[in-house]
């Protein structure tokens, strides 16, 4: 549609125009804007859709949670079974997030700083857990460590994994596996390796190079990945549901505790505990928005909004 001779001019014009905020480029031109009526209609449609599917559910969580008053709310949260669920959720997230963090840094270092064959296959494999249904994520660990599984007989004698805490931790690690790696890989690829190479040439050790050069460069991306990874780790339901024994006070995470309360028709209690997870979601969104803002202020690059992501490589 745009002829070949225009390309160069267009490039110059574009680079001048990008210094202006995008918004002002569209709003003031009549030729590139819709009539006010169409504009208002589209905004109305979008806001109605957002209200129906996002805002009303969000508000209703809190409305239901406080339906029987503050006393009942705090009673539901302070219940010993609820507290043990909170504790188990913190344990599962506390183990899986650091492990996936170490993995994410290692994978990003290897993939972004070096050239090797099969890199694209490795990138796809890192993403694999995102395309697996949560139920199947739990099932595969049952197949290995369950009573009839590959190592089932050995583990049932020595250490219980399925229907116990280790199974919950394993399933959580699986579902949150790609989160940090997929934030860091494109970021470190974009940054290249010249700064690290310069540090090495100037005499820094490998560890010094990483700590003093790489880490400051990736800290916002790392934080972003950790926030998203943590939200998923604490909220995972399907995979954990398969491997948990559903034993109250022992193998129940917060989402599983919500399910039990709900199925017992203790709706207000279920929503009270669910409101904790909703607070977590809101804090996650706020932190995420803040990190995105900080990052664009500093470097002008955008993160991969999860789990959509820009494919690296």
């Amino acid at each position: 549609m745009v002829g070949e001779p225009l390309q160069h001019e267009q490039f110059i014009m574009t680079s001048a125009a990008t210094t202006l905020p995008i918004r002002s480029r569209f709003v003031h031109h009549r030729s590139t804007n819709e009539p006010p009526l169409v504009r208002r209609l589209l905004i109305a449609v979008a806001l109605t859709f957002i209200a129906l599917f996002l805002v009303i559910p969000l508000v209703s969580v809190f409305a239901q949670a406080f339906a029987k008053g503050l006393h009942f709310y705090f009673q539901s949260i302070r219940d010993p079974l609820a507290l043990s669920a909170v504790k188990l959720t913190l344990i599962a997230a506390g183990i899986s997030v650091p492990l996936n963090c170490i993995f994410g840094i290692c994978a990003a270092w290897a993939i972004a700083k070096f050239d090797f064959r099969g890199k694209n296959i490795l990138l796809t494999l890192v993403d694999l857990p995102f395309s697996v249904s949560p139920v199947i994520s739990g099932l595969i660990y049952v197949l290995i460590f369950g009573a009839q599984g590959w190592f089932g007989s050995w583990f049932s004698d020595n250490m219980k994994i399925i229907f116990a805490v280790p199974g919950i931790v394993l399933a959580t690690i699986f579902v949150t596996f790609p989160f940090i790696a997929r934030e860091l890989i494109p970021l470190m690829q974009a940054q290249g390796r010249t700064e690290e190479e310069a540090a090495r040439v100037l005499g820094a050790s490998g560890w010094q190079t990483f700590r003093r050069v790489t880490l400051p460069n990736i800290k916002w991306g790392l934080l972003y990945g950790v926030i998203l990874c943590n939200a998923r780790a604490m909220g995972e339901f399907g995979a954990v549901s398969v491997v948990s024994g559903h034993i109250r006070g022992q193998t129940n995470t917060i989402p599983l505790h919500v399910e039990i309360l709900y199925n017992e028709y203790n709706f207000t209690g279920a929503f009270a505990v669910a409101s904790l997870l909703t607070f977590l979601a809101l804090i996650t969104l706020a932190l995420k928005t803040w990190v995105e803002y900080r990052n664009t202020e500093l470097s002008g690059t955008a993160f991969a909004p999860l789990p959509v992501g820009k494919k690296a490589g």
Binding site: L54, A231, E236, G238, P255, E259, A274, L277
Partner: peptide, 12 residues
Amino acid sequence: LVDLPFALPTAV
């Protein structure tokens, strides 16, 4: 808010 479905646990 558009990211809420990513952040909100599915059970909730």
